[in-house]
Design a protein around this nucleic acid. Sequence first.
DNA 1: ATTCTGACCGAATGAACATTTTAGTCATTT
DNA 2: AAATGACTAAAATGTTCATTCGGTCAGAAT
Lengths: 190, 190
Amino acid sequence: MVVDRKESITKAAEETFASFGYKATTMDLVARVASVGKGTIYTFFKNKEELFYEIMNQFIQKVKKVATGAISPEDTFFENLHRALFSVLEFRKEHQLTIKLTQEIREIGTMQAKQALGDVEDAILDFLVDIIKEAEKKGDIKHCDPKVTAFVILKLYIALVFDWEQRHEPLSSKEIADLFELYLVRGLKK
Amino acid sequence: MVVDRKESITKAAEETFASFGYKATTMDLVARVASVGKGTIYTFFKNKEELFYEIMNQFIQKVKKVATGAISPEDTFFENLHRALFSVLEFRKEHQLTIKLTQEIREIGTMQAKQALGDVEDAILDFLVDIIKEAEKKGDIKHCDPKVTAFVILKLYIALVFDWEQRHEPLSSKEIADLFELYLVRGLKK
DNA sequence: ATTCTGACCGAATGAACATTTTAGTCATTT
DNA sequence: AAATGACTAAAATGTTCATTCGGTCAGAAT
């Protein structure tokens, strides 16, 4: 059986980062999990950081896939937006890797972890900017700055999905959809 | 000249906390700034924590005053809301004490500092809940859960005032008002 | 020739110990 | 009766040094 060395190293590393976080994962451990000599890792990756970036990039790709997969052309812009954002955030929430990274940021504050989560957020923002521009062109939404709008939409979602449940009962997907509809789509004005 | 011991200690302590933060401020220093023996402080406050709480409470009172002061009955609910929130956040932003506490949370993560900023946020939320209930009764806004609405409004403002400028040019007061109007008041739907 | 390996090295880490600082007390002074 | 500051126990900080870890490379395996 021929195995793709690079792939199996990446897979082992992802597992290990996910279980132990960035800092607590040693290259020895990755090598052991991948059943590979430590030196082998360095024939595929320049250093630990680059290996980590590779994994994060793959993760970002997966996030984009989840987001794109949640969009179906027959639904309205707002339905699609909600479904895409909610599934991305759910995905992110359930993914061991991001959980460990968020913990690491809280506990230690590794630059790598901060940077990595920032990159994930940027990818989501880029995705949002695209579909907002599309929606504006189609006339589904009012004229607005796509960047600020994407930023506001993401912040609102993060607030409703993550921040709210820090001190209250979590909101269901339906509740979040309704609140998003009320606040951002229809507006508060009577 | 008779001086109020408790008041001058509080004042000295506030100055000191504001310049150095919670952790770096010693009781010796407070006593020196207040021109008072260290023991005297303990006749008015049980411990350092209680002295700190006294100051934070005074700060929350000031925040409430600023918010209330920004409201004038002849203006609309949304005008008032924006003016109140914006002046509170500006006040908070310019206040040395909160700046130092925010830094401290980022750098170290003192429980006291976290708790204190959480309390400030709670006070603002309570204030918002009140004026939202009022506005709903008057029929200025649609029916909504006041707590969630207050939470969303505050998060949106913090996002626009603090978070946005982490990676972009700061938004002016007018821009923020316009964005708030667009996103939360009128809604994105065309 | 090419891929893979693990012993080896200097740098980084953190455990253990030593020193300093600080919150809070209380006997003494005012 | 109120105020004080020297004093103490505990916490924070600095220092040392053995261990660990990321990364290299000479040589083995294919």
